[in-house]
């Protein structure tokens, strides 16, 4: 089966800074890939290049076979994207906003109504449909962003910190929603919460300073911690691969069908 997201040798330079420095990996249908790394490691930049918001300095991205650089509209129509902070037009009501998204996605008439109703019920927005988005709580704003991202039932879903700033109940709901959708989609999400990787992801990639330093299952990730570490084992591994003060530095595992870091 062909990969839904195919990233090869991706680089982004901002002046002398290499924010993303040779990242390559694939995401397949049914995979929930947790994208981790310290702040400034290049997570968001990578996602912005995958979604076509930024153009790479080098490398290629294919989404469902569409080259994001040469055929951006085709690639963008098969992916759903929740940008960091779930931006939405504050003056619009949730309903007007979703109708705008549906129009742009090319739905009309009863199909449009059905798509909006479906996204609204999945994101549980029924109670706030007629409120301007600026009056909504953080949790609801995030759900409006989610509804927007899944409205066209995209085969590829990309989410930048989908649970950031939510309370534990809201986190639980968003995770449940993602898990429900995970079977028939390829999902790439970034997070700072290591437990989330354990709870949600089938695979984890850690990047540091623009390079992949780990690529494997959450279990393999945790197993990298020595046996004498009994608490917060994932935290320990995360620190060791991203700060470079442990023997695990740079030792990328390759348990998934993907290439790892470096100059692929």
């Amino acid at each position: 089966m062909a990969a839904m997201i195919e990233i090869r040798g991706l680089e982004k330079h901002f002046g002398p800074l290499r924010a993303v420095d040779g990242v390559s990996f694939d995401v397949h249908r049914g995979e929930v890939l947790g994208f981790l790394g310290p702040n400034g490691a290049g997570k968001s930049t990578t996602m912005k290049m995958v979604t076509g918001f930024l153009s790479p300095s080098a490398g290629t991205v294919h989404v469902c076979g569409h080259d994001v650089a040469s055929d951006p509209v085709a690639a963008k129509s098969v992916l759903g994207y929740l940008p960091e902070g779930a931006p939405a037009y504050p003056d619009m009501t949730a309903e007007a906003f979703l109708r705008f998204i549906a129009d742009i996605r090319g739905f009309s008439g009863s199909e449009r109504a059905r798509r909006i109703a479906d996204a609204v019920s999945k994101a549980r927005l029924e109670g706030v449909l007629h409120q301007p988005i600026e009056t909504l709580s953080k949790g609801y704003k995030r759900r409006v962003g989610l509804a927007q991202a899944i409205l066209h039932d995209p085969p590829v879903l990309i989410m930048d910190e989908p649970t950031d700033g939510l309370d534990p109940n809201q986190k639980h709901e968003v995770r449940a929603l993602i898990r429900d959708m995970s079977k028939e989609k390829a999902i790439l999400l970034s997070t700072h919460i290591l437990e989330e990787v354990e709870a949600l992801c089938t695979r984890a990639i850690i990047i540091n300073k623009g390079r992949i330093v780990f690529d494997g299952t959450p279990e393999a990730f945790e197993a990298k911690a020595p046996a004498d570490v009994t608490k917060n084992r994932m935290d320990w591994v995360f620190r060791s691969v991203t700060t470079g003060d442990a023997e695990t530095n740079g030792a990328a595992q390759n348990s998934a069908p993907a290439t790892v870091g470096g100059d692929a």
């Binding site: 912005k48 979604t51 076509g52 918001f53 509209v73 085709a74 963008k76 129509s77 992916l79 994207y81 940008p83 960091e84 902070g85 931006p87 939405a88 037009y89 998204i101 742009i104 996605r105 090319g106 927007q148």
Partner: peptide
């Protein structure tokens, strides 16, 4: 930040 949303729509 809505520019990121707008520019990643088709």
């Amino acid at each position: 930040g809505t520019i990121e949303l707008l520019m990643t729509l088709p």
